[in-house]
C-alpha cells in the first residue's frame, strides 16, 4: 500500500459545485479519502477570474501528488475556462519544473449517450499532462451525463455501476496505479438504452422550455434574409 497523498480536484464545468462533473469528482475524492488522502477542490471558471482563487489552485497543484480533472464535454473538447487553466498552468510549469513526480487523470462526461464521444477531450487532457510534466494515469469517459444531473451518485438504483466503478478507480489510484482498462470500460457502459435516454432528454427539454415560457424552440433569430 503506498502512502496517502494530496489530490487536487479541478472542475472544468462552469456549473461548478452543481455540475455532474463535480459529482463524479467528489465520489473519486471520497474514495481516496478512505485511503487517508487529503483533497482540495477548485473550479476552473472561478480560478481564472479571481486572483486569490488562482493562487490557491497554483499552490495546491504544485504540492499535489495527483490532479483529477472532472469536466463536461463542450463542443467535442473542454470548456474554455479549463483550457485557459491548462494554458496558465503549462506556462508556469514550463519555467519552473514541479518538485516531485505528479500524476493526472481526467473524467469527462457528455450530454450525448455514447461515451466514446469524450475520447477527443480525453486526448487533449493527455496532451496537457505530457506537456506540463504530469504522468498520465488514464481517462474515464461517461456518456448520458444528463441522467446524473442533480442526481446523487449512490450504490443504489441507476447510478449503482457509476458509484462502484468510481470507488474502484479511487482504489487503483490510491495504490499508485493507472486506471485499469476494466474500470474505464465499466464507466463507459450506458446507464440505459440510448433510445430511452434520448426520449427522456427531449421530453425534459420541452418541459423546461414550457416552464420558462419559451414556446418556439425552433426559432431562427439570425436567419439570413434570403433564407
Amino acid at each position: 500500500m503506498s502512502t496517502p497523498g494530496q489530490v487536487v480536484l479541478l472542475i472544468g464545468s462552469p456549473r461548478g459545485g452543481r455540475s455532474t462533473s463535480a459529482q463524479l469528482g467528489d465520489v473519486l475524492v471520497a474514495g481516496l479519502k478512505k485511503h487517508g488522502w487529503t483533497a482540495t477542490t477548485h473550479i476552473a471558471r472561478t480560478a481564472i477570474a479571481n486572483p486569490p482563487a488562482w493562487s490557491e489552485l497554483e499552490r495546491a497543484t504544485a504540492a499535489a501528488d495527483l490532479v483529477i480533472v472532472a469536466t463536461p464535454l463542450y463542443v467535442d473538447s473542454l470548456p474554455a475556462p479549463l483550457i485557459e487553466t491548462f494554458e496558465r498552468l503549462h506556462a508556469l510549469r514550463h519555467t519552473a519544473a514541479p518538485p516531485k513526480a505528479q500524476r493526472l487523470i481526467a473524467v469527462v462526461n457528455s450530454g450525448f449517450p455514447e461515451a466514446h464521444q469524450n475520447d477527443t477531450a480525453l486526448a487533449i487532457c493527455r496532451c496537457f499532462a505530457h506537456r506540463a510534466g504530469f504522468r498520465w494515469d488514464g481517462g474515464l469517459a461517461l456518456g448520458m451525463g444528463g441522467a446524473l444531473s442533480g442526481q446523487a451518485i449512490t450504490e443504489r438504483g441507476r447510478t449503482h455501476t457509476v458509484a462502484v466503478t468510481l470507488h474502484r478507480a479511487a482504489d487503483e489510484l490510491a495504490a499508485d496505479g493507472p486506471l485499469s482498462a476494466a474500470t474505464i470500460q465499466a464507466l463507459a457502459r450506458p446507464m440505459m438504452p440510448v433510445w430511452l435516454y434520448r426520449l427522456i432528454a427531449e421530453v425534459s427539454f420541452r418541459i423546461t422550455a414550457w416552464r420558462h415560457g419559451a414556446r418556439h424552440l425552433g426559432a431562427q433569430p439570425y436567419a439570413r434574409e434570403d433564407d
Binding site: 483550457i83 485557459e84 494554458e87
Partner: peptide
C-alpha cells in the same frame, strides 16, 4: 493547444 483550440477561440 494541447491538440485542441486555444482558450480564446474556445
Amino acid at each position: 493547444t494541447f491538440g485542441g483550440y486555444s482558450a480564446l477561440l474556445k
